[in-house]
Design a protein around this nucleic acid. Structure first.
Lengths: 220, 220
DNA sequence: CTCTTAAGTAAATCAAAATTGAATTATTTT
DNA sequence: AAAATAATTCAATTTTGATTTACTTAAGAG
């Protein structure tokens, strides 16, 4: 027998872990799409298929939810980076591999770029509070550094390449056209986000990075 | 004699042009700092030193104010680009000049990058409505294209360089570390926004672009 | 100098969105 | 199986922020 008035049959089965996970997923997507201020708590709840009150139950408030989303997306990256095995490859291949992987990663993880963009708009308010993020990236730079040293020892790379500059460049070349796809497309009247253009870009970026590290005969 | 109750002495002298200008300036700065949703109409008014009602008087609503700010910042760029005289320089110098000017422009016009970032977050909603922006950029690409052709003819640049890819790369290399300064700094534990690092970066970017266009002896 | 217009102000209003209160069970514990 | 816990819901409440109403008055036109 149904209740006379109050309870309209709560369908949702209880599962805190699942719920937390769904909220986090939804938050990630909403923050990525709309930025921090643009994302609405109720919309996140809806997209997570749960009641908005649960967001406060599990994450206290919008700010902490955002922080959790930010932390999660960085830990996803950490995993990818760890997978990358540069030591096994000859230096030239290693740099190529690194470039391609980075390029493809951004292409397939728009959310990372979007969240990052949002976080920079907020002045790094949250990421600066997460010391764990830095610790995970140092070893990655070391890997790249090794490849550069090997390349120089083998006489195929030039000397004195700054790893951080190089890596920032790889990221810049791989990310900017995604971050700025709308304004670039509007400015130059070309569809920057088309598959064709992106394929061209991939080749262009790989070549630029190769030229950046390769020894130039004339200089040698 | 002072009024008994109503008017608490309106200090502001009347000057519609000045007021409009101040509002636009303030809007630019607030939208750049906080993004579209993050910027508050009352704060813009305060920062413009005027009453919030005037924003509606002159710009109708927040959206149109934002559109006006966007239009203004692009027209500022248009001017800079027009000033750049690449034809007068030998091709190698022209490309160097272009790179340095672009790099310096972004460094000194953080607002442009911020507004652009915000606009991309909005999915290009406003810029796609401004056909005038595209028209101004085409001739600029032509200029660069000319320099590349001259360079190839003189035997100092390689063949088949895609102008748009190259220019997007110059912008990417010059802008990304500014757009992402907070997240990059936090990730790598280095102050990406320090003067020292940016000077290093400038040299690095110029060199990368030179390597990208220069004929490589080994290939030739 | 008067009249009209529009620049400017202060204080609502209205709606959206974040956050919270209070009640209702499902599930676990004892 | 009763009691305790905490997952979940619905419906406020409170906050914030965009927009508007109503009024005042400076400045220019005749």
């Amino acid at each position: 027998m149904k209740n006379t008035s109050a309870s309209p049959a709560p369908v949702r089965t209880r599962d805190p872990e699942r719920t937390k996970g769904q909220i986090l997923e939804a938050a990630l997507s909403e923050f990525a799409t709309n930025g921090y201020d643009g994302a609405k708590v109720h919309q996140i709840a809806k997209s997570a298929g749960c009641n908005a009150r649960l967001i406060y139950h599990y994450f206290d408030n919008k700010e902490r939810l955002y922080a959790a989303a930010l932390r999660k997306i960085y830990s996803d990256i950490r995993e990818r980076e760890a997978e990358l095995n540069l030591d096994a490859l000859p230096p030239e291949q290693a740099v190529k591999q690194l470039t391609e992987t980075t390029f493809d990663f951004f292409e397939n993880n728009t959310a990372f770029l979007s969240i990052t963009r949002s976080e920079n708009l907020l002045g790094g308010r949250f990421i600066s509070q997460m010391p764990e993020i830095q610790k995970m990236s140092a070893p990655f730079l070391d890997k790249i550094s090794d490849a550069l040293k090997r390349g120089h020892a083998e006489g195929v790379f030039r000397a004195g390449i700054d790893v951080l500059q190089l890596y920032v460049s790889i990221v810049a070349l791989s990310a900017h056209h995604i971050n700025a796809s709308h304004t670039l497309s509007a400015t130059f009247g070309r569809d920057i986000s088309s598959v064709a253009w992106r394929q061209e870009r991939r080749a262009h970026v790989v070549e630029m990075i190769q030229n950046a590290v390769a020894l130039r005969e004339s200089t040698a």
